[in-house]
Design a protein around this nucleic acid. Structure first.
Lengths: 229, 229
DNA sequence: CGTATTCTTGACTTATATCAATGTCGGTGG
DNA sequence: CCACCGACATTGATATAAGTCAAGAATACG
């Protein structure tokens, strides 16, 4: 399948890679259009590929034994995801669902060690990527350990605005479908509590809600809350 | 400084590395004995080295702006730690304190990219290490999102018993000094709640407490609690 | 010994979950 | 095109897990 090289070039992971190396990489890649709501891979499924998100937005969810769901992370364009093999796993630990029309690149997992060995720069960058993810996880742990719900929700919304926000008349629109339940699963609370919090913020003019919609109208206001009232 | 090679060989990261490669690595390494209670590096300090724990036990803590402390992780023998550079940071995100007499190896951070480029296997293994750490973080996030305190404490104690337990008459001893406060900082709760929980478990014969001591007497009992009563 | 941590335990408070009911939006198909 | 249905959201009332406040006991250490 033919893949637009300029789109790839815009991704930090590949921006300084020599042409030939990049071509070698793309040779083995396949791309796929993923419509809103469809899954890229599912929790427990055999990890046959690793992926790169070129365009769109995904959420990675996990379901616990007793049926509770959490959102492990949101995948943004340029992010590697589903690299279970690099974590020495054979199955995917979560389910990746498109929350906006998306475009992915994928490679067979067998090629991962190969790529890494032949391309040390890729290895270093990939490690940095995973490292950043680790830091994000630690931030989340820290917030869940020390902050109350409202602050956590504020932090989460601000991060979404930063990573997935589109400037719009009146504020920053979160650029994909996101429900109260989703926000609850990202912050470790219930949709009821999130709903109450967003309602309160709406009264204060900080945000504007809507069905699976969110518009941040006053970033400073939220930052005040995030930093502990 | 002369370093015992057999000790290094026992560590998975290096077990299958050619002798010459290992020597090249050890050439640039320095080892240090860290007495109980001393720090290896401190939060915010310039990341000048990365480390490997050969022997002993460390805890890595973080202090938030408003002075609350959490334990990010416990470092066990064989673990890499303080590899801030791999995460493209210039400072250490936390403080590493010896909770038992310890022995570390360290390398100047500048050598990290060098090592990785010259030793692809090391790169892959290091990535797996970070990957595992990421998974552990996700487990913790999942537990904090979905489980109540008692279950989380049970999970944490069981993990400690598994990773840092020494068989002993009557049960499995957690092999380093650990306070109620420490357990609280690992599970996102308060020392009071931990104290009450451990007291209750002691009455049930699951554990035996003591000042900065913990003995797991009934692993199955704890596992029942961990899995949701 | 006495002084400082660490731990325990009780009483009380509170944030947040749970339970329950109703409202609203938006897409589907008749 | 409108009506209806299902998914999503709001909001109130109530329950409760866990935090906070407070005091004292146990243990280690110099």
């Amino acid at each position: 399948m033919k893949i637009d090289r300029s789109l790839i070039r815009s991704i930090p992971l590949f921006d300084r890679m020599p042409d030939e190396e990049l071509d070698r990489l793309l040779q083995h890649a396949s791309s796929r259009r993923v419509p809103q709501g469809e899954t890229v891979f599912e929790q427990g499924g055999t990890a046959s590929s690793f992926y790169l998100l070129l365009h769109g937005r995904l959420k990675v969810t996990q379901v616990t034994e007793d049926g509770q769901q959490i959102i492990v992370r949101v995948v943004h364009p340029g992010d590697l995801f589903g690299f279970a093999k690099a974590l020495q796993r054979t199955d995917y630990p979560g389910t990746a669902i498109a929350v906006a029309e998306s475009l992915t690149l994928s490679w067979p997992t067998e090629l991962w060690p190969n790529f890494v060995e032949h391309n040390p720069r890729l290895a270093v960058t990939a490690m940095q990527t995973i490292g950043q993810r680790l830091e994000e996880a630690h931030v989340r742990i820290r917030e869940m350990s020390t902050e109350e719900v409202e602050r956590r929700v504020a932090h989460t919304v601000l991060r979404l605005a930063k990573k997935a926000g589109r400037q719009e008349a009146g504020g920053i629109r979160i650029d994909f479908l996101i429900s109260r339940q989703d926000i609850a699963e990202m912050t470790g609370t219930t949709l009821h509590t999130v709903s109450r919090i967003l309602s309160a913020w709406e009264k204060l003019g900080f945000v504007e809600g809507g069905r699976q919609k969110l518009l941040v109208k006053d970033q400073n206001g939220l930052e005040t809350i995030a930093s502990g009232s």
